Amino acid sequence: MAVLEAENRQLREEYARARQAAYRRTAVSLLIVGLLGIAGGVVFPDARTVLFALGGTGIFAGVLTYFITPERFISAEIGGRLFEAVHADREATIDELGLRGDPVYVPGDEVRLFVPRDTDAPLPESLTDLDLFVVPADPTTGGVAFHPTGVPLFEEFSDTMDQSLGTRPQSAAPVLADALVEVFELADSAESTVDTDTQRVTFEVRGAGLGDPRAIDHPIASFLSVSLVEALAEPVEVTVTEEDPLTVTCRYGHRE
């Protein structure tokens, strides 16, 4: 057993070093391009402005890439295992309380994943500062309010944005689909379509990672739903169909 653990640790370290080496090779390549651009600007005065600009960009990108090289990498398998633990606790809570309603992501001081007591039950009158166990005066509006896995992902995503998502699903949806692939690498590809008549945003996702994507509050569906709640300031219900491709359907709009 000790030998296997040592071998696994060695493999993880080698994998991390390989990923870091790939980043650093990219950084060195950019630096070389930058230096060649500067040298070319000295040798060819007629193109000096363009070559100096190219050289400066290459050097800046190379330095930036080198210093933002991640020190550690978490494999998708480990991330999936961690989510399985979160999912198991949430399913157990829902079963213990006998909740039968469909989960809905709701706006407030912070987006929460509300699971109502009964099917088609109305949302609580106040959605601000919800406790984990929602026990209002009207017992038909009770349930639980989880902290979604998509909230920290949305916060991380927001830090990369130069501007807001906007308040229209047509502008937000394609940006979120790109973020799944380009920012978080949670999927190989993702496309979006918007139907304003039925108030639905549908994402087709290929190569989804991190465990069972149909599980409640899976990071892919959670990130998309939380982001739409933040953009539209409306509750969002999500349905996930595991086909080829994976389909994540977000229904937005006020729920009585």
Score class of each variant (00 low, 15 high):
residue 72 R to E: 14
residue 72 R to N: 12
residue 73 F to T: 11
residue 73 F to G: 07
residue 74 I to G: 08
residue 76 A to D: 13
residue 76 A to L: 15
residue 77 E to L: 11
residue 78 I to S: 11
residue 78 I to D: 14
residue 78 I to H: 12
residue 79 G to M: 11
residue 80 G to V: 10
residue 82 L to C: 13
residue 82 L to P: 12
residue 82 L to Q: 15
residue 82 L to W: 12
residue 85 A to Q: 15
residue 85 A to H: 15
residue 85 A to K: 14
residue 87 H to R: 13
residue 87 H to E: 15
residue 90 R to P: 15
residue 91 E to V: 12
residue 92 A to P: 09
residue 93 T to K: 11
residue 94 I to R: 13
residue 95 D to L: 15
residue 95 D to G: 13
residue 96 E to M: 11
residue 96 E to P: 12
residue 97 L to F: 05
residue 97 L to C: 10
residue 98 G to K: 05
residue 98 G to R: 07
residue 99 L to C: 04
residue 99 L to H: 04
residue 100 R to S: 15
residue 101 G to H: 08
residue 103 P to S: 09
residue 104 V to E: 09
residue 104 V to G: 04
residue 104 V to K: 06
residue 104 V to Y: 05
residue 106 V to Y: 06
residue 106 V to E: 07
residue 108 G to V: 01
residue 108 G to E: 02
residue 111 V to Y: 09
residue 114 F to S: 02
residue 115 V to W: 03
residue 115 V to G: 05
residue 117 R to K: 14
residue 117 R to D: 14
residue 120 D to T: 12
residue 120 D to P: 15
residue 121 A to D: 05
residue 122 P to K: 04
residue 122 P to L: 01
residue 122 P to F: 05
residue 123 L to Y: 06
residue 124 P to H: 02
residue 125 E to N: 03
residue 125 E to A: 01
residue 125 E to S: 02
residue 126 S to W: 01
residue 126 S to L: 05
residue 127 L to K: 02
residue 127 L to G: 03
residue 129 D to T: 11
residue 129 D to F: 05
residue 130 L to R: 08
residue 131 D to L: 10
residue 131 D to W: 08
residue 132 L to F: 13
residue 132 L to E: 14
residue 133 F to R: 14
residue 137 A to F: 12
residue 137 A to D: 15
residue 139 P to Q: 07
residue 139 P to N: 07
residue 140 T to S: 12
residue 141 T to P: 05
residue 142 G to W: 04
residue 142 G to N: 06
residue 144 V to I: 07
residue 144 V to C: 04
residue 145 A to D: 01
residue 145 A to Q: 03
residue 146 F to Q: 06
residue 147 H to A: 14
residue 149 T to W: 15
residue 149 T to A: 07
residue 149 T to F: 09
residue 149 T to V: 06
residue 151 V to P: 01
residue 151 V to N: 00
residue 155 E to R: 09
residue 156 E to R: 14
residue 161 M to N: 07
residue 161 M to Y: 12
residue 162 D to K: 10
residue 162 D to V: 08
residue 162 D to T: 09
residue 164 S to T: 06
residue 164 S to D: 12
residue 165 L to P: 03
residue 169 P to T: 00
residue 169 P to Q: 02
residue 170 Q to S: 04
residue 171 S to M: 00
residue 172 A to M: 00
residue 172 A to G: 02
residue 172 A to D: 00
residue 173 A to Y: 00
residue 173 A to L: 00
residue 175 V to S: 03
residue 175 V to I: 05
residue 176 L to N: 00
residue 176 L to C: 01
residue 178 D to H: 09
residue 178 D to Q: 07
residue 178 D to N: 06
residue 183 V to Y: 10
residue 184 F to D: 07
residue 184 F to H: 08
residue 186 L to F: 04
residue 187 A to Y: 09
